[in-house]
Each structure stands twice: as C-alpha cells, then as structure tokens.
Design a protein around this nucleic acid. Structure first.
Length: 284
DNA sequence: ACCCCGACCTGAGGGC
DNA sequence: TGCCCTCAGGTCGGGG
C-alpha cells in the first residue's frame, strides 16, 4: 500500500488524534513484525508531543525522550475509531463499544479522543521504540537520501546521486539512498511524466533529464497527495475513505491498455523483481 | 563498493 | 469446491 503519499495521508489523519494526547491504553498483540515490537507498558501513559514523517516512516515523539517509529510495510494501515462524547479514562473507554478487533490488528493505541488500530496482514511493517537523541544515527534512518518534496531535491542533486550507476533508472528511483518515498507505483508514473524509458542506465541520464525527472516526481507525488493517495486492494485512509490517485494512473497496472497520450499499448517488464510499466513511444 | 536475489508474510485471483 | 501457482504499494542481509 504505502509510498510517500499514502504514508503522509496516514500521518495527517492520525496527527489530530495523537499530537498532545496521552496514550491512555496501549495493546500490542503481536510479538514481532519485521522486528520485535516494544512492550505495551513502555508506551502506555506517554504523551505524543509531535507526529512527523521521514521517508516512509511515521515518527511519534514521546514525552519520555523516546520516539515511536512506525512503518506500514506493504500491507499496513491504520483505522481510527473516534470516541463520542468527550474525554474518557481507560475504564470509561470500554463503555464505548468500537467494532470487534479484526484479524491482524497488531497494535491498538487509545487516547482520550480515539482508538487507533494498526492492521498489517503481511507483517512487513515495523513498530520500534528508539531513544530520541539517537534517532538520526539509527541504522534505519541515517543513510536515507533527500525528501523528494523538499526544495533541496534538485536535478543537480539527483544527477550527483546517479553518477556511475549502471542499474536501470526505475529500480534506482526506489533506492532510499538516492531519494526516499518513491515506491513501485510512483517510480513508473514519474518516469512516464518525464518521458524517460525505465530501462535507461541511471548514470546515463542527462542533466536535462534529471531536472525533468525531479520535477515529475514532485508533481506526481503532490498530485497523489492531493487525491489522498492510491487505493489498490485494501489501502484505506484511517477514516475508512479510499484514495483516488489510482484513477490518475498513466501506466501503472495498465499493461496492454492504450497510452492516454498516444494510444500505444502500455508495456510491462520486471526490474529487480518488481513490475515496471511504460509507454514505448512516449518514453525514450 | 556495488548489484542482485532470496527472504520475510498473508491473501486474492486465475487456471485446471 | 479445492489446490496450486503467481502476484502484491517494502526492505534487509548475504553472497557474487
């Protein structure tokens, strides 16, 4: 499910229920996701000071000098069940019967405002408790490339990151040390928008192409954010709404269908074991 | 230092 | 109906 637009959509939906709120009750129902999950007692009673995002990680700064790191993996999502009728103590919360827990509901965070449930069938997601002072040197975070929507991500920066790389540009866009947040959907979509063939060796892109590609990545991600991300199969906003960017796909998941620009059939191939889609006429 | 591949998981969908 | 195969929005560690 989650590339930058879906992760940011999730963060935006969670923030009003978490920022400034105390985790009155925490349940951890799975011993490990990608890594062992923190004990509920270490999180319960803490207040969330701030909820921010870096790459595809959602980070909750807690009031005990720890940060809760959340990653949605392939199939992770949050559901929000707001309480009705104002603030409550944990005991009172049980008086508000939210729907029964579902299969793969691995963590439940309850504040005075809502119950937030993390569901992840494939368990590629991640919940980690990290000392806040050590966050930027944590192995998961210290080698990350630039945020694609930051002003500092420019054609020159991309070209420098691609220098000497012989791998095709498409899987390279999904390399977190080059740029973060771009996954399998938005890599194909951005290359289409830039008119670049996904098989071109990354290091061979011209300065002009890098500049165009950076502009396309920003445009595609911003448009996806504006439409609430992409809903394939099961991705939902924490509110339960679907995203709509899947209606805007130019190439992703459209093998054999006509290019919206030139009518040529969209092609599909595999790069690094992931599907790539492109138009052989519009992308050179 | 790079690059590729398998591994980690469950579930949906298609073919037989 | 069921079984078996493939594929799915991500990342990491090992080996070449």
């Amino acid at each position: 499910m989650p590339e930058l637009p879906e992760v940011e959509t999730t963060r935006l939906a969670l923030a009003p229920h978490l920022e400034g709120q105390r985790l009155a009750m925490v349940q951890i129902r799975v011993p490990k996701l990608r890594q062992p999950t923190p004990a509920a007692e270490l999180l319960q009673g803490r207040t969330v000071l701030r909820l921010f995002r870096r790459a595809k990680y959602i980070l909750a700064t807690l009031d005990d000098d720890y940060t809760l790191l959340i990653h949605l993996g392939m199939s992770g999502r949050f559901s929000v069940f707001p309480h009705t009728g104002g603030a409550h103590t944990p005991t009172q919360l049980t008086k508000y019967p939210h729907p029964p827990l579902a299969k793969h509901d691995h963590a439940i965070l309850t504040t005075g405002l809502a119950e937030l449930r993390f569901n992840d069938p494939r368990r590629f997601g991640l919940l980690l408790r990290i000392p806040t002072h050590a966050l930027h040197t944590h192995p998961l975070l210290q080698n990350l490339g630039p945020e694609p929507l930051d002003a500092g991500f420019t054609g020159a920066v991309l070209q420098a990151a691609l220098r000497g790389k012989t791998t095709a540009i498409k899987p390279t866009l999904m390399n977190n040390t080059v740029v973060v947040g771009v996954g399998n959907i938005y890599a194909s979509e951005s290359l289409f928008a830039a008119g670049i063939n996904p098989s071109v060796a990354a290091g061979e892109l011209s300065k002009t192409q890098c500049t165009r590609l950076v502009a396309s990545i920003k445009k595609v991600l911003q448009q996806a954010l504006a439409t609430g991300g992409s809903t394939l199969r099961d991705f939902r906003h924490p509110t339960g709404e679907a995203g709509h960017f899947q209606d805007e796909f130019r190439v992703y998941d459209r093998a054999g269908e006509p290019c919206h620009t030139c009518g040529t059939a969209i092609l599909q191939a595999t790069h690094a074991q992931r599907s790539t889609y492109w138009c052989p006429v519009c992308q050179k």
